[in-house]
Amino acid sequence: MDAVVRKIAPKKEENKNPGICASCKNLNFCTYPRNQSRPIMQCEEFLGFEPRTKQGKKVVSLRLYQAKTRKKEKELSQYKGLCRYCVNCEQCTLPRSEGGVWICDEYMDEE
């Protein structure tokens, strides 16, 4: 059986509300009657933020982030010296010494 769903306040209007609803993840599904002249300051069903990366993607957890970082580190570990940090590393055709390249005029970092 479905519960009766009441009219849901549009998010853009709620954002004008100075209360905490504007930053609640339940906002789009919330059916509690609210009064714009009485902004909510405390709510037991408030659902907090999800941190985002700079690309706007959700960070699932710190552990997952660290696991991804470790994988990237492992992939890069085949390169030694400057090559490891050079943006041209994978396309580079210059000969590399076994001990790694430590001086290179072609070196280019991300900046």
Partner: peptide, 26 residues
């Protein structure tokens, strides 16, 4: 929730009970 009937806000407040615990918002 399958083991209950859906009701509206007004009917909820009209429910006959001994105790009401408001535990949501202001």
């Amino acid at each position: 929730y399958p083991a209950a009937e859906p009701v509206d806000h007004e009917s909820f407040f009209k429910t006959k009970a001994d105790i009401f615990i408001p535990a949501a918002l202001e």
